[in-house]
């Protein structure tokens, strides 16, 4: 498995894919756009009532998981503090609610707050890597969430309720259907940006840093800077996701800053597969839906959720999307046998 990954990283790092990239760049963007358009169009017809709301929640977690995967899957950084940036975006929207800024401006401010917070943190924490870095992110996230209780303006346990959704280009986002379109547009654009980043030299340099920091450094990549930039990008995107979440829910509450949320978003990446573009997205959807379905159908959802997760971790190291190459390999083998 590791050798496979290394190979892939090597290919990216050495530019073996450049010839392919020229051919693939536009289709890759189109591919993402197509998925978002299809899901967007079918969504309101397929999901009625509260399930559309659930689908919108899932969509926001797709963005959050994709942002986290910039660290986890691309750069090989484990962060147990991503909820802090997600929460920072949400609380920014909550604090801005009285000024009634347009929703898009709120997203920009949320993104900026997430990015700045992440950049400051990674500048300070850059001295350590690995488990120690993960521990620092955990501590950082917990400290930020403790601040929610210590700064009266942040509302403590009750959070910041009563956030209006506002209107965009004169259209109110009040109905769940218009908000769905708004969320589809925002997450779709960012998903395309993430796809382009992944295929860019920046994406390749992150993969090189992940696979072998020493070699990356020898290749002229500034390892520390790459890590800081990756962390900032992840914080920015998490900030947007958090801001969207607050607009959807109408409340920014302290539970979204807890370390368990940071753990959950890593789980989403892991379920789907963190070494593929689509893995985190699939993982986020499955996580959200499974969580919702289990809590309504069993008395101890934790038990089944935990068991399911254990099976995925043990049997599918590359997540559910790891199944695709496994199956296709088996199918080609069978075809060969048949012919």
């Amino acid at each position: 498995m590791t050798t496979q990954l290394e190979q892939r990283g090597q290919n990216l790092a050495t530019g073996k894919t450049t010839s392919a990239k020229a051919r693939w760049r536009i289709p890759a963007t189109l591919e993402v756009a197509a998925v978002w358009i299809v899901v967007g169009v079918i969504g309101p017809g397929l999901f009625t009532g509260s399930t559309l709301f659930l689908a919108t929640t899932a969509l926001i977690f797709v963005l959050f998981a994709m942002s986290t995967n910039v660290l986890l899957g691309w750069t090989g950084i484990t962060s147990f503090g991503q909820a802090a940036f997600f929460g920072a975006g949400a609380y920014t929207v909550g604090l801005l609610a009285p000024i009634a800024l347009p929703p898009l401006i709120q997203l920009f401010v949320g993104a900026a707050v997430g990015a700045i917070l992440a950049m400051i943190f990674s500048l300070v924490a850059n001295r350590v890597t690995g488990v120690e870095f993960a521990m620092l992110t955990l501590v950082f996230g917990e400290s930020i969430s403790l601040l929610l209780y210590r700064i009266p303006a942040l509302g403590g346990e009750s959070g910041l309720p009563g956030i209006p959704r506002g209107a965009i280009f004169g259209t109110s986002l009040f109905s769940d259907k218009t908000f769905w379109w708004y969320a589809i547009a925002i997450t779709g654009v960012l998903a395309i940006v993430i796809r382009r980043l992944r295929g860019s030299t920046f994406g390749a340099s992150l993969t090189a840093v992940r696979d072998n920091p020493l070699r990356a450094s020898a290749l002229g990549i500034n390892v520390k800077l790459s890590r800081i930039v990756a962390f900032t990008v992840a914080g920015l995107l998490a900030g947007v996701a958090g801001a969207l979440y607050a607009q959807l829910q109408g409340i920014a509450s302290p539970d979204i800053m807890s370390w368990t949320v940071s753990g959950e978003v890593i789980i989403m990446c892991l379920i789907g597969g963190m070494h593929t573009y689509w893995g985190p997205a699939i993982g986020a959807v499955i996580f959200t839906v499974a969580n919702w379905a289990l809590s309504n159908s069993t008395s101890s959802p934790e038990l089944y959720f935990g068991l399911g997760l254990l099976v995925i971790v043990l049997v599918l190291p590359e997540g559910l999307l790891g199944l695709v190459p496994m199956i296709s390999k088996r199918m080609t083998r069978r075809q060969k046998v048949l012919s």
Partner: peptide
């Protein structure tokens, strides 16, 4: 035992999954 060779994130998450499982079991 199956995860010693894997990276620390995977192990952390496996242990988190085990925490959830045992938590649910205790409630049962």
């Amino acid at each position: 035992r199956r995860l010693y060779a894997r990276d620390h994130t995977t192990t952390l998450l496996a242990s988190y999954a085990l925490l959830l499982t045992l938590d649910g079991l205790v409630q049962q």
